[in-house]
Amino acid sequence: MFGGFDFDVIERSWRYLFFTGMSFTLRLTLLAMAGGIVFGTMLAMMRLSSIKPLAWIAGTYVNTLRSIPLVLVIFWFYFLVPYIGAWVLRSDTPIHVGAFASSLLTFVMFEACYYCEIMRAGIQSIPRGQVWAGYALGLNYWQSMGHVVLPQAFRNMLPVLLTQTIVLFQDVSLVYVLSITDFVGAASKVAERDGRLVEMYSFVAVVYFIACFALSQFVRGLQARIAIVR
């Protein structure tokens, strides 16, 4: 079956695939994860806030973005952000937003919705008595969130947060629609150039499988180790 397979194309291009493509994918994944978790946690706190307008804004935001396919959001952001930026800055010409900045912003805003729901579940999993205990000691809302609730919520949810990050790692390949050279983008360029579509896309699939499978095994191991003794 692999008789006609040209492994040579991989050998010729792997440096480009990994050092240009994969390094972009990883950079975008890690930055989007960090931004997404921070923004998502803020959204979760808003959704759980007793201040109704805050809860409403966060809820609407999350539900709206989760109802739109990611690829549309990527497009939409890439083509509209220059004009929105121009409008905000009162500039006459569309501002220049690089593909990396645009896609990072998109992923942070989009993934924050999913991280938000995870953190919301995490915050709600902390018994009410823990919050009471914090308040009874004189901690204010931010202190009790920062020292009591979020560290526990974060730890409880770490496996789910990482699983979502694995999904994000795969989703990042969608930036290929913006002709960005991520891992898939790099592979497709080589594939087109050398006419080796089957080889390149199979190789990409195998790499994604190995990376994601290894990560999810790691998450499973982690789950057992980090459980808080109650």
Partner: peptide
């Protein structure tokens, strides 16, 4: 204040 379920911070 002391609670029924102790509510020490487990982490």
């Amino acid at each position: 204040m002391v609670f029924q379920n102790f509510e020490l911070f487990p982490h």
